[in-house]
Computed example of a mutant assay.
Amino acid sequence: MNRREVMSAGVAGAALTACASPNAGESITPEQYGKAFEGFAVNIESWWRDVPFEARFDLAAKNHFSHVEFWFIDSWDRKASDLAKLAGDAGVKVAQIVGDAPALAKPNVHGEFLDNIKRAIDNAKILDTDIVTITGHQDVEDVSTGDALKSYQDHFAASAELWEASSVYAAIEPFNPYDHPGHFINGHKEAQRICEEIGSPYIKMNWDLFHMQRHEGELIGNLRRGKDQICYMQLADSPDRHQPGTGEIDYKNVIRACREAGYTRPIGLELWAKDDNYARAREDIYKLATTL
């Protein structure tokens, strides 16, 4: 074990100790935690931010999560092969990654977009995942919303063959204007329309429940109407983007509706633990999972 591995092991062990159950006398077995967390993928960009990124794969496993998700690779100077080794050594699977995209409101970025997609697909294959979230819907000065949506759809339609040939999903992720201002796709309507009009089985949506609630509400009804265009889901409570139980969303009913609608993949825990208390966040996720 080299010096870096020793240091990572040390911080991972310390953080794991900090994640012990906060309730005196409570004894939950690793098997119970593991079963409860089967339906979730912990986002290691937003969890355990007090330790190096590389150490968070082990932390995910030691906290009994079987799946992880994270963000950019190429533009953040990360190597997919290194990340795949970290995941493999920790014994966790990668649920989804985020791919780079230029401002797709511009019609003249087609070549750059296709190059990004090819790299993203290669990364997904190395990481043994089949979902790449793509945004690229930032506003561009002097481009109307209508023109931006048309350009965005045209880019994705032209890329469909690449996604289909690789059997990797492109997941369009809408935002909300309160936490992510400056974007022209918010809520489900435009993204769902784009997916339906393109008609590709591999261009779908990352249905982030936090963004959906912040922008439009009616989580369960909209979910049922959009279920055929969903390939991935994420959650956080609203309005502060902490773990379920800290805000306004009844996630017990929402997640039940997700499963009833046919969604079987892990749900990404793209949330920021309230007060940076990861132990409490883990226990809140466990309590939620055991009520489903």
Rank of each mutant, 00 (worst) to 15 (best):
G136E: 04
I126P: 00
I134K: 04
R193C: 04
I121M: 08
H137L: 03
G91F: 10
D154M: 12
F70A: 06
P201A: 07
N108H: 13
V94M: 06
D147P: 02
A90N: 01
L162K: 07
Y169M: 08
H180C: 10
A95G: 07
K62V: 04
L114K: 11
L114V: 11
D115C: 11
D58C: 03
H67T: 02
G146T: 12
F184K: 01
Q192C: 13
E173V: 06
G136N: 07
A80Y: 04
P174D: 06
P181K: 08
R78C: 07
F70G: 01
Y169I: 06
S75Q: 15
L149Y: 05
Q153I: 06
G88P: 03
H67V: 01
E197A: 10
E141V: 10
H180D: 09
K62W: 11
V140C: 07
V92C: 12
A95T: 06
G91M: 05
G199M: 11
D122Q: 14
H183G: 00
A120I: 04
P181H: 11
N123Q: 11
E173H: 05
G187M: 08
N116H: 13
E190Y: 13
L104R: 00
D77E: 15
R193N: 05
D179R: 08
I194F: 09
I198T: 02
S81I: 15
H188S: 11
P201C: 09
A158R: 12
D122P: 03
L149D: 01
T135Q: 11
K79E: 15
V140M: 10
L114H: 11
T129P: 04
